[in-house]
Design a protein around this nucleic acid. Structure first.
Lengths: 215, 215, 215, 215
DNA sequence: GTGTAATCGAGACGGTACGTCTCGTCTTCTG
DNA sequence: CAGAAGACGAGACGTACCGTCTCGATTACAC
């Protein structure tokens, strides 16, 4: 499942796990070394010592390779400590994402994925379903537990809050306007928390998009 | 200013503004119709009734065309009402971005731009300098005024807050995991505001990234 | 040999002889139909149902394609009857050249070749080495046998004589000032054999370029 | 006449003769320096310090420029001594052609002309009418006088003989298989005059196809 | 002289073809 | 007999010239 197929298009199981790993490593290396555009299917095949046909047998596109390479490296970034506060849970998730993107080839892989997703709906869908959805489900559960425990507002807009937590990380990853580091993720989560913290102190109605005079 | 040059690579001024407009329109149309990958330089030239050499004379790459097309359409999305609260200012900016992306070809253009920026540093830089920087400067000024007026915390992390306001919009634009609409932008700003609002009620220290068991 | 490589630039052997033939046929057809300038590499590729890269893999230029197409059609224009007089040998060679140029696509191909050779030294060299040299060697052997048998003068300038035999054919092929047909070739050979001077008064030494008043 | 229009397409008179000369010189220089393909219309215009439109106003194509440049340099290669034998007349004409091609830029110009003529019928026609015809007319007159005076056979094939005299020069100019020099031209003319058959044994019927016993 | 027109250089323009590149498929041949 | 090696059709890339066209600046001529 999590370690399963890439873009949902693969049919056969590869004969050798080593070959898979070699290919995915080659893709990651190429993206690190020569930028995204150096990682052509041809270059990946050559680097991995593999025929192009083998690549296309297992993955339908460069994005699918990137997705699987990314999933492989991201597989262990899932552990969430139990019985933790919502704030700590979100912090752990956000920091883990930053670490994944800055300390492994998953960063360039995600950039390639996001770029390809703009023109390849299959990649976009696979990315959403295989990467974003499960992560968001975990984070949503954290939010829901926080809402139940009273740590968080009961009327929280869960989806918007998920975006507030994760979006800044991807934003900096993709646009590089400011450095992406762990302290940034923590600042964002902290900032978001004080907004979603239990009421008693935020006199302004959260959503009324006609409201004025906030204070 | 807003109607200025594109990727910083152009040197001469085109003789005819109509030709420019035709090219930029063709690029926008192709991206709307056939997805990002339909907007090749060749297709743009053919659609605009223009020689390829003309394209390359004015713009060095497809991304540069997209950037200028985007800047053109985004030129009038700048007006910010005067003497307005920080929350209203941020709301206006976020909603304007959503409107730009959902009601004009600027959405596909920005998606193309973001995709190209992943493998073309020149595009990335131009995008940061020509689009993101000025917008962020305006928003930063709003934040600073809010801090001065007491509407916002005095110890605000300005850069992180800017990302919290804008990132969700780009996140949904690029990944389409949830619909991008104005109410989403307003929800995000409201959520962020209640976090950055003046103190007196937010017991959790914003930055304590070791605290546990808040509940 | 005759079916060998073209401009000396090819390295690999094509996998399919049919493809080769289709390409060469397309080139010949295009030259017949639309003149020399209709036979662009792009048109040849399209007509032959072949990618442009395939053309460039095997041949470095249009001239190389023309050369090989020409050599292919000219391959069987080599047979020379044995034990024949010098005059008859030269006549056969000259007439065979005329037939080749007037009854097959080799005529347009040679015109293309000659034209390209003016600005492409590689084509010029290949043309000399692969087409002209062997033909001239055969004709030179005919001349030498004739000199040995007493049919021809012993003090013959062999190279000049070869040019006298072949040049008129190419001259009319390339300039079309007069029709190129077999009787012309035969007239030239006969003229070369017997000379144009009135019989009886050809005592003038062949090379005395200062003599006057021969009459 | 000789200094007249180029390919018969010119209409207006240039304002300055100097400009004409500069253009023609530029064309000749470029052909000498960089081969035929270096002499593009654009390069000629740039080299001559002239706008492209000026070139196209006076000449319709590169071939027309080459033709006029060639005619200009060939204008003085026309003088034929009076009261001279046929052999000497032909010799003078052939040697003059060789000198023209080897000692002036007329050689490259003629090569360009011949190349262009293969794909441009107008150039071909202009070349025939303006260059070849008058030269051949002069040479034909020489032949006819020789026939009348008894120096030459009375049953001469005039056209074939003209080709025998001139073709070798163009043949070596265009194919460069052997050096083109004056002694070659003289050898050819001498050979044509006396024939290559050993004296005394030229009773062999010249060409046994249909005609017999020409003599 | 001074206006009026033609002509020029310069080069932008819509195109065509170039020769190269990568894609995704298909074929061959090797281990 | 699976797979590396890579040929292949397709088509976009960015460049070079083509022949046409529009510009101002520079003439040359009529007044």
């Amino acid at each position: 499942m999590a370690s399963g197929s890439a873009a949902g298009v693969r049919v056969g199981r590869p004969r050798s796990q080593e070959r898979r790993a070699a290919i995915l490593a080659a893709a990651g290396d190429l993206m690190m070394e020569g930028g995204l555009k150096a990682a052509t299917m041809e270059a990946i095949a050559a680097r991995a010592g593999v025929g192009k046909a083998t690549l296309y047998k297992w993955w339908p596109s460069r994005g699918a390779v990137a997705l699987e390479g990314f999933m492989l490296r991201a597989a262990d970034s899932w552990t969430l400590p139990e019985d933790v506060s919502a704030q700590e849970g979100l912090r752990v998730l956000a920091v883990a994402a930053v670490r994944l993107f800055t300390r492994t080839p998953a960063g360039p892989l995600m950039r390639a994925l996001a770029a390809d997703a703009q023109s390849d709906p299959e990649i976009a869908q696979a990315l959403r379903e295989q990467w974003m959805s499960p992560r968001r489900a975990v984070a949503a559960e954290v939010l829901r537990q926080g809402m139940a425990s009273g740590e968080l507002r009961a009327d929280l807009d869960v989806e918007a809050t998920l975006d507030l937590v994760f979006a800044p990380v991807y934003y900096r990853l993709l646009f590089s306007h400011e450095p992406l580091d762990e302290s940034f993720a923590e600042a964002c989560v902290a900032q978001v928390m004080t907004g979603v913290a239990a009421p008693g102190n935020n006199p302004a109605p959260p959503h009324a998009h006609t409201e004025r005079n906030v204070q």
